[in-house]
Write a protein that binds this DNA or RNA. Sequence first.
DNA 1: ATTTAACCTACTAAATTAGTCGACTACTCA
DNA 2: TGAGTAGTCGACTAATTTAGTAGGTTAAAT
Lengths: 166, 166
Amino acid sequence: MRLTTKGRYAVTAMLDLALHAGKGPISLADISERQGISLSYLEQLFAKLRRSELVRSVRGPGGGYQLSRDQVNINVAEVIDAVNESVDATGCHGSGDCQSGQTCLTHHLWCDLSNQIHAFLSGISLLDLVQRKDVQQVAKRQDRRYVEQLIMSTGEKTSADNKAAV
Amino acid sequence: MRLTTKGRYAVTAMLDLALHAGKGPISLADISERQGISLSYLEQLFAKLRRSELVRSVRGPGGGYQLSRDQVNINVAEVIDAVNESVDATGCHGSGDCQSGQTCLTHHLWCDLSNQIHAFLSGISLLDLVQRKDVQQVAKRQDRRYVEQLIMSTGEKTSADNKAAV
DNA sequence: ATTTAACCTACTAAATTAGTCGACTACTCA
DNA sequence: TGAGTAGTCGACTAATTTAGTAGGTTAAAT
């Protein structure tokens, strides 16, 4: 079982998408900015998320990504699975041939744990997360920071060319 | 959070110790043989288990390791913590400074998951495992194999004094 | 004294993570 | 039509961790 920044980044990015849903496609550059994840790394993760049909992409200017399903129908376990190839805690991926073809002493323990974790994570949808108070607070802080940054940079570049107000 | 062979090996080895308790100290060579874990690697793991005071060692011939506490008072989470430095699922180790000093969007989610996993694993003692049917069956198979191997090797040595076979 | 087995340190190969870089393609808008 | 935006793709890299090796030292039993 591995639960590293990879899976965490994926869930965070998907949650960012969920939080900004209904405003058209969200670019990876925006997510990168808001969540502090490198753009190129996000590209890799979203390639997998797209293959798992969790997101849809729109190319060209104004393009980006959108959730391909309703927020209530995407759970955290799916997202992690998509980038991490499973939250399995066994070494034999559940097959039971852990010790030279036979089950090891603790095989069933890890199976139980895997089920436990999977049950927990698959019981949490993106909608659940979006509705959490702590998530909303952090999102608010991030959006504020994001807009400030935008004004700063556009102010420096061109004073008139101001396309995004939010 | 990492749950790899490292933590699994540690739990397996501790369970082996629990299963063969009351027969004096168990050598790492025996555990290595029965559980298919490299001796040198076991040494590293047991150095940590000893530092965490989960096992006591006896040096010299007939020496080995013993559980330092009653089986019912050692749980799986402790064992993993001892070798793995925690089953924490957050990237910030619970401190909440995940995104440049502030909590990231999904911080609380990973805290919840960590608690969930910890609660599950700390609720399982070595005694619980020893009493499980599936564990007893695997242990029986391993002991049988171990005795067979022992007879084989001693029989070959005394007859022709050749130490390398199998 | 010899053997056994814990103890300790340092090294290594392989895998994985977390990224970078550069080129290319699809699309929009002026 | 062409400039610019943003996804797509593949290859490459640095750092970290895992899993395991190797070699020696120390304590105890016979």
